[in-house]
């Protein structure tokens, strides 16, 4: 399936990636060639095949409801781009 420039812009926005108009055509071409590779599987009849999300059949293990973590704010915020009063700062969110 060939991708249009507008498709690229739409998915780029969903993925919060900046793709300029000039780049969009090139990106569309590259992704289209990947989709062409992917489309090999379209001809295969999988009507009665159940999707497989994990390679083995196992079930989720459960964790006891116990608090095991302690406050590490100061340590963890050393690597943050911007903080104040213990909060992570981001450009103003407009509701």
């Amino acid at each position: 399936m060939a991708l249009e420039q507008t498709d690229v812009e739409k998915i780029a926005h969903l993925a919060r990636l900046h793709v300029s108009t000039e780049e969009a055509t090139e990106v569309a071409k590259r992704i289209s060639s990947i989709l062409e590779l992917i489309d090999q599987m379209q001809g295969i009849d999988t009507e009665n095949v159940a999707p497989m999300a994990h390679s083995f059949d196992a079930i989720q293990r459960l964790r006891p409801d116990v608090v095991t973590e302690t406050d590490q704010r100061e340590y963890l915020q050393k690597i943050a781009p911007s903080t104040q009063d213990g909060l992570y700062l981001v450009p103003k969110v407009i509701e």
């Binding site: 969903l14 990106v27 989709l35 295969i44 999988t46 999707p51």
Partner: peptide, 22 residues
């Protein structure tokens, strides 16, 4: 971008689910 596309509305069955069946 490829992954976002494969999961996006209208393409999920044809790409993601299909790939899981394969």
């Amino acid at each position: 971008l490829v992954g976002t596309y494969a999961l996006s509305a209208g393409y999920y069955d044809a790409y993601y689910l299909k790939a899981q069946r394969i």
